[in-house]
Amino acid sequence: MKQSSRIFDLLVGLGLLGISGLGLLYFLINERFEWIPEFALELARDPQILKRPKAEKCSECHKNIFEAWKESRHSISWTSETFIEASENRSKEKCLPCHIPQSVQGEKPEPRMDLRDEGIYCVSCHFIDNKMNGPYDLLAPPHPTYRNPDYVRSGFCGSCHQKTFKEWKATKVEDTCQDCHMPRKKGRLTQKKGLNLLHKKRWVGDHRFLHGKITEKDVILETGWEEKFFSLSLKNNTIPHFVPTADNGDPRLYLYIQFFNDEEEEVDSAKEIIAPQQETALPYNKKINFRYRLFDPVSKAVVELKYQPAWSKDKQPVFSKAVTR
């Protein structure tokens, strides 16, 4: 009886020791990693990561971020058919810096020569001076990691999205690019078994770089009739940059207006192309007016708005409204 009680005490003691050890490790990794001597960390470094690795290498630990990025337009910035066509088989110099950036650091990057198929990938944005940079100061033994506050600021995205950044800045809206396009969720930065439990959960940005859906709540339509004219206005009510927006791409809103007489016959039509490259995109919180001369008697207008992203030939409906006189 005495013997078994001793074994039990030993096991409990070992268990407590183990738990305390793990607790200490967790505390060290998450709260006091600066206590770990540099030489000990050097032993854990992965030299391959310090040589501008492919995204797949990063995915060995950061699986969730990698999978989100794979779904993003960034991951196909060099390989998408739309890009290849628009850049005349990638020969246009102006496209290269942002479609295959060497290092994004707040101003227009230089294009890179290697791993071009990776597009805008982990290394482009996070690898500076042989260290990984991000929004957190934390311990990641395979590579040195440094906190850089720029990662949660719009200026970082503005390295390439320069026009959109200027548009956003002019609105004075506080929500940053990351707030809308990289909404954060609590989660672990690494999914490597075992290691993941040693790292506390943090706010992690969505690396799909979301592109919101434009709805009738975003673009407000107002209409009016005069004897010989039909007028309408569109207002970008919610999106704190121009809609659509692009530095070099050509996204568009197509506005169609059909005019009908009392017999429901179409007597005339009009069309507007609302596009950043034509300087007709809708600024934030400002009404843009259109006016049409009516040459025939008209009793009804149907106003339809459709959105075509830069990377697609398909148009998505935003709204369709009938307006009677």
Binding site: K92, K94, I273, Q277, Q278
Partner: peptide
């Protein structure tokens, strides 16, 4: 007037065309 709407639309489209090269 109807022809002008078409012509203007096509002419203004050239801004997008220019942007294919001019940044």
């Amino acid at each position: 007037a109807k022809a002008l709407k078409i012509f203007k639309s096509r002419f203004m489209e050239l801004k997008s065309t220019c942007s294919k090269c001019h940044a």
